[in-house]
């Protein structure tokens, strides 16, 4: 899994690529792996306002509906139209072709609450270590 240095990350596993007063949002490679292949996605409309830490869309993978939580507040100015035809690109190319929405930021201070690549990686590794402790008796019967 990769976590590009130039991006910011949320604990809800979305990445942010800020450029001037706009930002592209997408899910991280960690989220893509944990969720499995995305088969449906439902995103807000252009012009909609989204609020930091609030649900702004849903996606379906492995018969699971997962809500997407906005890493930043802003106004949606562009949607990734390629996802309508093939949402699985979210899973395959989470950092480039699989981006979700482009927003115009409404509160630049919110960026402070996001994680760097290193901090995000440490955040998910911490969870993984806890899981490994729980997994000692995991015999992978169903793999």
């Amino acid at each position: 899994m990769e976590f590009p240095d130039g991006l910011k990350y949320s604990e809800e596993h979305l990445w942010v690529n800020k450029k001037d007063n706009t930002a592209l949002l997408g899910i991280t490679s960690f989220a893509a792996k944990e969720l499995g292949e995305v088969v449906f996605v439902d995103l807000p409309q252009v012009g909609d306002l989204i609020d930091q830490n609030e649900s702004f869309g849903t996606l379906e993978s492995s018969k699971t509906i997962s809500e997407l939580f906005a890493p930043l507040s802003g106004k949606v100015i562009e949607l990734n139209s390629d996802l309508e035809d093939d949402p699985s690109i979210i899973s395959e190319y989470p950092y480039d072709d699989g981006w979700l929405v482009k927003i115009e930021l409404t509160d630049n201070d919110e960026l402070e609450s996001l994680l760097s690549s290193d901090t995000y990686q440490a955040f998910i590794e911490e969870d993984d270590e806890l899981e490994e402790d729980d997994d000692d008796d995991d015999d992978d019967d169903y793999e």
Binding site: E34, L35, G36, S61, S62, T64, D127, E131, Y142, E143
Partner: peptide, 14 residues
């Protein structure tokens, strides 16, 4: 429950 959907369904399947 686990952040990995596959792990979650594996637990239930077990």
């Amino acid at each position: 429950f686990h952040s990995s959907i596959s792990r979650t369904t594996k637990n239930v399947a077990k």
